[in-house]
Design a protein around this nucleic acid. Structure first.
Length: 614
RNA sequence: GGGGGCGUGGUGUAGCGGUUAGCACACUGGCCUGUCAAGCCAGAGGUCGCGGGUUCAAAUCCCGUCGCUCCCGCCA
């Protein structure tokens, strides 16, 4: 080894020892005859002191060293002079008095500062020079944190008799779900593999194979548009167990998450055991199936109280099968008109046509009456005293508060208010950042109607089992069939989801038929599953957790890119490697592939021309 | 596929019709033996993302385009 110790481990107990360190020059403070070098490696920073009187040759080398030079330093550990300790450094009690300094490799001036205070560097620059970005201490910390969590996960499942089994990356394209990344086959002209969206079918087949307890940190691939919490390539903690019921999987994961939280985070878990909410309850109370339970501000429903209102927007919404619901903005009555307009804008992407609001001034409702002078609202004049009283009472509003209401289809109301609630929580500082709020969401609907395709689709995936007593509704009232599915949510992020699977071929076939698949289609696409289920498939179920989302929350970063070593941009490109990139004509020929980029462009410009004329 | 935001020396930013395009950090040279955001002095460094337009005049206004980013759709 070119070093005897790391840059993070020397303490008072090492005083007097001769050591050799190696690392990067983090910062240099040159006092002429005396040079201080902060030497950095993955483990920390140690101050190296180079004195021209004591080590003239070392001093000569040190004076040439610049930021990010790779240095090797031989010297003696010495206690720092009294009053010169640095309590901000783990090694701050000591310094290494250099006897010899060697430049192992010089470095160009990096495109952004690596040592020193963290500045917000443009992300495209960080991604282009990711190897430098990862050198920055907070990024190194994220990688270490991710590793620690991975280690905990592995140890947890090893200790519980789970088998870690790898599954194929070259898989088969599946008809439903996300868009597949496909891989052409050289040996089979015109045929393709697909990268796994998840090893769902494979892990179920492992259960049929009698493995009973499987887990894997599985790489998954989905060719869909990206988000702050979505990358085309990601890692899931994927597991499957035989002979289990939903509660068994939840208990297993709950204990794991508690252990991870207690090990890597100083933040307390708000509630143990984790609260369990039904999907319906979550939608009604929070407008989302991944509620952030670090604060209250639950939605309230006034549909029944305003269904006969003079205010047409409310009356018509309810008459048309919609709802009128609201959320409270504590202390929001003093918001400027401009700020309220901003809240309205916030709600529009979700389809809400507007936001109705009622601000309560001092003394509002004190005598059971809501006079115009006590309210600040463009709609109060359309509402009766009874309606106002009901709205105020259900919102729990006090003088000084602002009531925000949306009237629309239930899905629009939920999405609008759910996101409005989050915005209010953030703006009003109600979110307790210093806590971990886990919850389970259960009883998801098994099916949803796809208007575009005119057929029922699986909400989760087509292998999810229905709640036992709901099977008979499959043909008569498919919207009421509940799934044996569960999602785990942490601080408003869906970090995982799973289900008990169908393990009988007759039930699986029944569901496929409900989904409108012909027998021929089923045979072609899922024949292997149906056949497998006929050879003694055990009851089984599992779950998959997004590793990066989990780590991002513990790392307190808003994007999973910060906890991935080499993530892609929002457009799915890799700025360091320059991928995706064209391949040679020979490569294409070998794969029996003809590229139609020209055709597509021609089609697009033809469409544009047609549009311009029309 | 749609919408929003951003793009000014290496980095972070100010400037938002007429400035010699300013500041901080980084960088280069010099001085400096107790700093840890070292200090002091001097210096170099800018096609204001790109293209077009409006204007006597554009970093600044308009259109397009590229890149990054956030959101909607999408993500079984």
């Amino acid at each position: 080894m070119l070093k005897t110790h790391t840059c993070g481990e020397l303490r008072a107990e090492h005083i007097g020892q001769e050591v050799t360190l190696a690392g990067w020059l983090n910062r240099r403070r040159d006092h002429g005859g005396l040079i201080f070098i902060d030497l950095r490696d993955r483990f920390g920073i140690t101050q190296v002191t180079v004195n021209s009187d004591e080590a003239p040759e070392a001093h000569q080398v040190a004076s040439q060293a610049r930021s990010e030079y790779v240095l090797q330093v031989r010297g003696v550990v010495r206690r720092r002079p009294e009053g010169f300790e640095n309590p901000q450094l783990a090694t701050g009690e000591i310094e290494v008095i250099a006897q010899e300094v060697t430049i192992l490799n010089p470095a160009k001036t990096p495109p952004f500062l690596i040592g020193g205070e963290a500045v917000n560097v443009d992300e495209s620059l960080r991604l282009k020079y990711r190897y430098l970005d990862l050198r920055r201490p907070h990024m190194t910390r994220n990688m270490v944190l991710r590793h620690e969590i991975v280690r905990l996960i592995r140890e947890y499942f090893y200790a519980r008799d789970f088998l870690e089994i790898e599954t194929p990356i070259l898989l088969k394209s599946t008809p439903e779900g996300a868009r597949d990344f496909i891989v052409p086959s050289r040996l089979h002209p015109g045929k393709f593999y697909a990268l796994p969206q998840s090893p769902q079918q494979i892990k179920q087949l492992l259960m049929v194979a009698g493995m009973e307890r499987y887990f894997q940190l599985a790489r998954c691939f989905r060719d869909e548009d990206l988000r702050a919490d979505r990358q085309p390539e990601f890692t899931q903690l994927d597991l499957e167990m035989s002979f289990v019921e939903p509660g068994d999987i939840r208990a297993l994961i709950e204990a794991l998450m508690i252990q991870i939280s207690e090990t890597v985070s100083p933040k307390p878990i708000r509630q143990v055991p984790f609260p369990v909410l039904t999907y319906q309850e979550a939608m009604e109370r929070f407008g989302t199936d991944r509620p952030d339970l670090r604060f209250g501000l639950e939605l309230f429903d006034v549909s029944d109280a305003v269904q006969e209102s003079q205010f047409g927007v409310f009356r018509n919404a309810v008459a048309g099968g919609g709802q009128v619901k609201g959320v409270l903005y504590p202390g929001g009555a003093s918001l400027s008109r401009r700020e309220i307009d901003e809240l309205t804008e916030l709600v529009k992407p979700y389809g809400a046509k507007g936001l109705a609001w009622i601000g309560l001034k001092e003394g509002a409702g004190s005598d059971g009456h809501y006079g115009a002078e006590a309210l600040r609202s463009p709609i109060a004049k359309f509402l009766s005293q009874e309606e106002l009283a009901a709205i105020v009472q259900r919102s729990g509003a006090q003088p000084g508060d602002l009531i925000l209401l949306v009237a629309d289809r239930p899905d629009v109301v939920a999405a609008s208010l759910g996101n409005l609630r989050l915005a209010i929580g953030r703006r009003a500082g109600l979110v307790d950042e210093n806590s971990l709020a886990f919850c389970w969401i259960v009883d998801f609907p098994l099916l949803e109607y796809d208007e575009e395709e005119g057929r029922w689709q699986a909400v989760h995936h087509p292998f999810t089992a229905a709640v036992d007593e709901d099977w008979d509704l499959l043909e008569t009232a498919p919207e009421r069939v509940r799934a044996k599915a569960y999602d785990i949510v942490l601080n408003g992020w869906e970090i995982g989801g799973g289900s008990i699977r169908i393990h009988r071929s007759d039930q699986q076939m029944r569901l496929f038929q409900r989904l409108g698949l012909s027998e021929a289609e089923v045979e072609e696409k899922f024949g292997h599953m149906l056949e497998a289920f006929q050879y003694g498939a055990p009851p089984h179920g599992g779950i998959a957790l997004g590793l990066a989302r989990m780590v991002a929350i513990y790392a307190e970063t808003p994007t999973i890119r910060d906890v991935m070593a080499f993530p892609k941009t929002a457009a799915g490109t890799d700025l360091m490697l320059g991928s995706p990139s064209p391949v040679s004509e020979e490569q294409l020929r070998e794969l029996h592939i003809a590229v139609r980029v020209g055709d597509d462009e021609a089609e697009r410009s033809a469409e544009k021309a047609a549009k311009a004329e029309g």
